[in-house]
Amino acid sequence: MSPKNEISLCVSAALERYFADLNGEKPAGIYDMVIREVEKPMLQSVMQQTGGNQTQAADILGITRNTLRRKLTEHGLL
């Protein structure tokens, strides 16, 4: 097993705090919550790195430009 990278460590730590803060309440929708919370800042960072070039950003992310545009729209980043 490879060592965890900084991003996975941050997500793990955040989830540990989230579960601790629930104080025994049953969690729900964790997957969608994590994706929603991580996706927007990831898109913002990649768009900044590419100077707003959507074709380059899509290549970096490994998604199509159309998918990138849809996600940017969903997150209010266009």
Rank of each mutant, 00 (worst) to 15 (best):
M1Q: 14
S2F: 05
S2V: 10
P3V: 09
P3L: 11
N5P: 04
N5Q: 04
E6I: 01
E6C: 00
S8I: 11
C10H: 07
C10N: 08
C10Y: 03
C10I: 08
A13M: 11
A14V: 08
A14F: 09
A14C: 03
A14M: 11
L15Q: 09
E16F: 04
E16N: 09
E16T: 10
E16M: 11
Y18T: 07
Y18H: 10
A20Y: 05
D21H: 11
L22G: 05
K26H: 14
P27E: 14
P27H: 14
P27R: 15
A28F: 14
A28Y: 15
A28W: 14
G29H: 15
G29Q: 12
D32M: 13
M33E: 04
I35Q: 04
R36S: 04
E37Q: 07
V38W: 00
E39W: 03
K40T: 05
K40E: 11
P41K: 10
M42D: 00
M42G: 01
L43D: 00
L43G: 02
Q44A: 09
Q44V: 10
S45W: 07
V46D: 04
V46M: 09
Q48N: 12
Q49K: 12
T50R: 07
G51A: 12
G51V: 11
G52K: 02
G52Y: 03
G52P: 00
N53R: 14
Q54P: 03
Q54W: 01
Q54K: 13
T55P: 00
Q56M: 13
Q56E: 15
Q56S: 13
Q56A: 15
A57S: 01
A58G: 09
A58D: 05
G62Y: 06
G62Q: 03
G62D: 08
I63H: 07
I63M: 14
T64Y: 04
R65S: 03
R65V: 08
R65G: 00
N66T: 12
N66L: 08
T67Y: 01
T67L: 02
L68T: 09
L68M: 07
L68K: 00
R69S: 15
R70V: 02
L72C: 10
L72W: 06
T73L: 06
T73Y: 03
H75K: 13
G76R: 05
G76N: 15
L78P: 11
